[in-house]
Every structure is written in structure tokens, then in C-alpha cells.
Simulated assay, not measured.
Amino acid sequence: MNDALTQPLYDEFPVLYAGRIKPASDSSMCWGFQCGDGWFALLRELSMHLTDYAREETSFHLEAVGVKAKAGYLRFELAFGTDWTEACIEAARRRARETCEATGKPGALCRPARGSRHAWAYRVLCDEKANELGYSKVMRDLSPPN
């Protein structure tokens, strides 16, 4: 995600994204948001829900340790989670599965039309971006990567 979108998330949710200043051995957030700009809105919404929850559950330590796209899936990992936070993250993952990583428009899982057929090269893209980048829709869904 570009800096113009990343910084507002850091500014609005400093506790959630405190890992951005930690070394890689402690948090993958030191590499920022490793996904496209199109997921900004859903990440902001998820961040708001998680932060609101942490305000009510004062004993809960809220900190993201990694946010990235992997094979077309949103990977959002907390240092500590609860059933509620996991359900909230899962809802965002489902939304990301239908949201173009590049534009935020409705999208679908796509793979490179030529070249690599490895799952790590898959992305969620709208038709316009898929055509522009040389991707084609995947006809069957794959299970999430580990």
C-alpha cells in the first residue's frame, strides 16, 4: 500500500499498528501493509472495529503483527486474538476476496494468464486491472494458504 494511504492508518490507529517501529524479529508490520491500495477502506473499517473492541475490553492487548495479501487472501494477524477478533478478521477476509487489491472495485481471484501458475502469484482483481496486468479469473476457488 502506498505511503499516502499507509500513514493515515498509522496516525488513526497508533496502538493497533505499534509494530511498525519494531524490528522484523518482533513484528512484520515493520514492512508496512503488504497489499494493494484497493484494500485501504476495508482495512480502515477492520481497524475501527478492532480498536472499538479494545476500548471496551480494557484487558485486551491490541496489536497487529502483520498485514499482507498472500495468493489473493488477506492475511491480518494480531499478536493476541479472541473469538470476536477472529470473526471480525474473517469477515474482512471474505470482503477482501471480492475486492480488487489495486482499485477497491468489485473483483475476483485471478492468476497470471502467462508465466507463473503458482498460487502465490494469484491476486484479487477487477476486470479492468486483470486485463491491464495480464491476469485471468480463476474458475474454482482455492483453499487459503498457510
Rank of each mutant, 00 (worst) to 15 (best):
E77G: 05
A96D: 08
A91F: 02
E57V: 15
E45H: 14
S47M: 11
R75D: 05
G38P: 00
H61D: 12
G66H: 11
K70L: 15
A64C: 15
A92D: 10
W31V: 05
A54F: 04
R93T: 13
L74K: 00
E90C: 08
S47V: 12
W39C: 00
L46R: 02
E86T: 12
S59M: 07
D52L: 13
C35W: 00
A87V: 09
A71P: 09
L42K: 02
S59N: 09
L42P: 04
A69Y: 00
C30N: 04
Q34H: 04
R94L: 08
G32I: 02
A92C: 14
V67R: 03
E77A: 08
E86C: 10
F40M: 10
E77V: 14
E57K: 14
C88F: 07
R94M: 08
R95P: 03
G72N: 06
C88K: 09
A64D: 04
L78W: 04
C35S: 11
H49V: 15
G38C: 03
I89L: 11
T58M: 00
T85M: 11
G72Y: 01
F40G: 01
T85V: 13
D83P: 01
A69D: 07
L42C: 02
A71Q: 07
L74Q: 01
G66Q: 15
L50G: 01
T51H: 09
D52C: 13
W31K: 13
S59Y: 12
E45Y: 06
I89V: 15
R94A: 10
G36N: 01
A96Y: 00
E63G: 13
R44K: 15
G66R: 09
R95V: 04
V67S: 13
W31T: 14
A87K: 14
T58S: 13
S47P: 07
A87H: 12
A69K: 00
S59H: 15
A91P: 10
G81F: 06
T82C: 05
C30I: 12
Q34A: 09
R95E: 13
M48P: 01
F33T: 03
L78I: 11
C88N: 12
L78C: 06
C30T: 15
R93G: 08
E63D: 10
K68C: 05
E56I: 05
K68L: 08
T51I: 02
A92M: 03
F60S: 04
R55A: 10
C35P: 03
D83S: 07
K68M: 08
E90D: 13
D37M: 01
V67G: 08
R94T: 10
